[in-house]
Design a protein around this nucleic acid. Structure first.
Lengths: 208, 208
DNA sequence: TGGTTAGATGAAGAAAGCTTCAGGTTAGGA
DNA sequence: TCCTAACCTGAAGCTTTCTTCATCTAACCA
C-alpha cells in the first residue's frame, strides 16, 4: 500500500518499467487525437484506450478518471508554452524593451501555433473547474517571468510591472485565441503577429 | 404540421400565449442559474426545468435538446455585448480616435462585467462546436461596426482598418477574459481597464 | 528456472441523463 | 357555455459511458 490517493489529476500509479511509460504516453497522445476527431463531448475513455492500443483497464491504472486524463493533457500543453516564455524572459534580461516584446510574442505564438488544432481542442477542457485552475497556475508562472524581465529595463517602468505583465499576457492570449478560432489561422498569422508586436511596443514605450 | 425541424438551435415551437412565453424565459434564466451553481458538466435538463418551475416536457417543447438550450443562452448574452458595441460605434463616428477607444472599451467591459458570473459560466458553452459558431458571428458583427467607425477618422488609417479592428477586439477580449478568470475581478477592473485604454490609444496613434 | 511484482485485459455492473409520449389542464374564441 | 388548440406533466424507456475487478501475461531478479 505505497500511497493513499491524492485525488484527481495525479496518476494512480507511477510507471516503473519501460512498457508502462509507453502506455502512458500513448494514452496521452490518443487523448489529443480523439479530442481532435470527435470533440470533448464524445470523447470516451474506451475510445481513447482503443486509439492508444491498450485496454480501458490500463487507462484506469494510470488515470483515476476521465477528468484527470483531460487535465493531464491540458497541463502538458500549457507547460510547453510556459517553458518557452520563461526561457525567453531569461534570455532577454537587460535588453531593450522593444526586443523583449518582439521575442516574447514570437515565442509565445510559436508555441501556441505549433500544433494549432491541439490548442483549439484543449480550449474545451480549460473551461472545466479543474481545468481553469491549471490555466491560472500557468498564467501566474508566466506573469512572474515577465515581471522579472521587465524589472531589468534600463529606465525603470513608471507603473506596477506586474500590471504591465498582465496586459502583455492578456493581449497575447487574446490574439492567439482569435487566431486559433479563425477559419484560416495561417493567413492571419503574420499580420496579426506584426500588429501585436507593434501594439505592445507602443504600449511599453508609453509606460517608461 | 406547421413546419419541419430546422435542427438544432431553433425553438421547436414558437410561443403564442403569454404563459408559454413566460415558460421560455423562465427556462432560459434557469439555465444560467444552474450553470452558475453546478457548472455545465452537471447541468441536466431536468434540473433546469425544476429550477424554472416547469416540467422537463415543457422544456423539450421549446428546445429540441440540451445543446440548443445552452446555445440559446449563449446567444442571448453575446447579443447584448454586440449591441452595446454597435451603439457606441455609431455614436462615435467622426470623433477623435482616443475617444473612440475609450468609449468602446468602456462599453465593452461594462457589458461583459454586468453579470460577471454569467459570462464566466457561458465560456464553457462557447467551446462547443456550435457555440464557437455563435461566438464567431458576434465577433464578425462587432468587427464590422468597429471597422466602420474607424473609417470616419479625420486622418485615414495607414493600414487595413479591419486588421486594426481585429486587434482592438482581441485585446479587449483578452483583458476581459483575464478579468473574468481572475479570483477578484472587481479589484483588477479599474487598473486593467485604464491600461487597456492606454494601450489601444498608443496603438491607434501609431497606426495613423 | 522459479517466484514475485508490474502491467494488461475486457466483460459486466451501476449510474446517470436525455428524450418521449400518452394523457391531463388551461385559455380563448364561437 | 362549450370546444378546440395551446400548453403542461412526469414516469419510464433507452442509450450511453464510466469504472471496477478477477484473471491473465510479461518482466525482472535470485
Amino acid at each position: 500500500m505505497p500511497s493513499a490517493s491524492k485525488a484527481v489529476l495525479q496518476p494512480r500509479k507511477t510507471p516503473v518499467q519501460a512498457r508502462s511509460t509507453a502506455s502512458v504516453n500513448a494514452i496521452l497522445e490518443a487523448t489529443i487525437q480523439v479530442l481532435l476527431e470527435v470533440g470533448k463531448e464524445r470523447l470516451t475513455t474506451t475510445r481513447v484506450a482503443y486509439r492508444a492500443g491498450v485496454s480501458v483497464g490500463t487507462l484506469y491504472q494510470y488515470f483515476p478518471n476521465k477528468g484527470a486524463l483531460l487535465q493531464a493533457a491540458l497541463k502538458n500543453h500549457l507547460e510547453l508554452v510556459a517553458d518557452a516564455v520563461e526561457r525567453v524572459c531569461r534570455e532577454e534580461r537587460g535588453g531593450p524593451p522593444s526586443q523583449m516584446v518582439t521575442r516574447i510574442v514570437d515565442k509565445f505564438l510559436e508555441a501556441k501555433m505549433k500544433d494549432i488544432k491541439t490548442s483549439v481542442a484543449l480550449y474545451s477542457v480549460s473551461s472545466d473547474v479543474e481545468g481553469s485552475k491549471i490555466v491560472e497556475k500557468t498564467a501566474a508562472r508566466m506573469n512572474k517571468a515577465i515581471t522579472c524581465m521587465l524589472a531589468t529595463t534600463r529606465e525603470p517602468l513608471q507603473k506596477d510591472p506586474q500590471l504591465v505583465a498582465s496586459m502583455i499576457q492578456s493581449a497575447m492570449a487574446g490574439v492567439s485565441r482569435k487566431l486559433l478560432e479563425s477559419s484560416s489561422p495561417d493567413k492571419q498569422f503574420m499580420p496579426l503577429k506584426q500588429e501585436l508586436i507593434l501594439m505592445l511596443t507602443a504600449y511599453l514605450d508609453a509606460s517608461l
